[in-house]
Design a protein around this nucleic acid. Structure first.
Lengths: 234, 234
DNA sequence: GCTCGTATAATTGTATACAATTATACGAGC
DNA sequence: GCTCGTATAATTGTATACAATTATACGAGC
């Protein structure tokens, strides 16, 4: 559990180990490697043109991130994520997003408030135009702003971790054609509650927002999962 | 974020790397190494009689656990934990312990229920006798039972992680002489709510229990912190 | 005395060699 | 054809050598 650094940044991108780590992470999250796939040190090393040492170190990190499981003397295997795991994560997230919105109400800066408003208005525009790709990106950004605004390294890290983890089961854009605009309406509600300095309402709306996102995901069939990056699920 | 394995167990204890990892972890949590201390690969290696390779791999793991920060080409430094971090963790935990108690109400097994009851009765006995050490251990065990009973690998792992992390700021037993019995009374309430299959009450009580634990900790001065392992803070 | 630059030492980063462990191939025996 | 055991190959675990980077010592110049 790394509370102090964004796991995104912690493993530096410039050392060989950092590059191996990030690339393997992307490959797992994007679905290039699937559950139960075995990752072999030499094969990965040759593929990326490095020796086993940085690969091994990257493996240790991936294991703690929960993306692979290392069985001593045997090998490294890509881990899966069950539907129950996804549900649990969304339930946990719904509570923590609520807390985050509450704290954001108390700690948001003028600049962050500004960007959040802009985000909502811009998203409304793209929703009308049917620009799903932009909508998805604004959705992600909305949550990042919220996480930063809560002014808690610990909570921010926790939520980003969960969000990242859930990327693995993102569904195809199709399912989100209906959700996109509705999601943005909910963002507007959260944004206005924060602007009005109403922590109770902000918490409640952010909480519901996450539950709605989950229910929508289930309804549109999360099962065959594992889809494109950049999709909009929040 | 490792959702799939208890970080306790994931790094196997039998490889050199695993041993180095666990020993360094204990040393940091117990306060042998303090904030900003630098960990040098060769020094640690010599001290434990191993080469740099396992030490380096252990370092990568400790970094993701948030216990050290590695600055590329420079060194590994023990990270600190601020009072705000502790507060944030307790607020987050209070929500998640509530959720955990709710889920436990729905999923607890007969054996777990049995052990939980036993735990509460035994703790009451030790509280009357003034056995602080036993009380502390039963307190820890109570929470572990709760975590296991919620039947969610994700939530269980999350809560254990937080609990472990907070060990770093545990205060001396003294401060808990009053808290011990009170804490056990609260455990009894949670236990009975679970037994009565009352999820709302269980959630609320577990939530409050954690907030009370935090407030007690603050009242008795968490500041000069860093104390004995096995103390009772929940 | 202070600042700066350079030489040297210390330290981390990476590759590789060898040991230990596990997987695979394949034939003996039934 | 099936089971088992052994030889061989493949793979991971650990130590170590060398490269690259950073820290330290120390003297020149002001």
């Amino acid at each position: 559990m790394s509370h102090y650094d964004d796991s995104q940044e912690s493993a530096d991108r410039y050392s060989l180990r950092g590059r191996v780590f990030h690339r393997l992470r992307d490959d797992i999250l994007s679905g290039k490697y699937e559950e139960h796939d075995e990752l072999k040190e030499v094969a990965i090393g040759e593929e990326m043109g490095v020796s086993r040492t940085p690969v091994r170190e990257a493996f240790r990190q991936l294991e703690l991130e929960g993306l692979i499981k290392i069985i001593p003397n045997k090998g490294a295997y890509v881990t899966g994520i069950t539907e129950k795991d996804v549900k649990d994560i969304y339930m946990i997230r719904s509570l923590l997003e609520g807390l985050c919105a509450r704290w954001a109400t108390e700690h948001i800066t003028a600049e962050q408030m500004e960007e959040m408003e802009e985000n909502v208005y811009l998203a409304e525009f793209h929703a009308q135009k049917g620009h799903l790709e932009q909508l998805a990106q604004l959705d992600n950004r909305f949550h990042d702003i919220l996480y930063e605004a809560c002014d808690s390294k610990i909570l921010e890290h926790q939520l980003k971790d969960f969000h990242q983890y859930v990327l693995r089961v993102r569904r195809k854009t199709l399912a989100n054609e209906n959700r996109g605009p509705k999601s943005n309406e909910e963002h507007r509600g959260i944004m206005e509650a924060i602007k009005d300095k109403n922590p109770d309402l902000a918490q409640e709306l952010a909480h519901r927002h996450m539950i709605n996102a989950y229910e929508n995901m289930v309804k549109s069939g999360l099962h065959e999962a594992y889809a494109h990056r950049g999709d909009n699920v929040t």
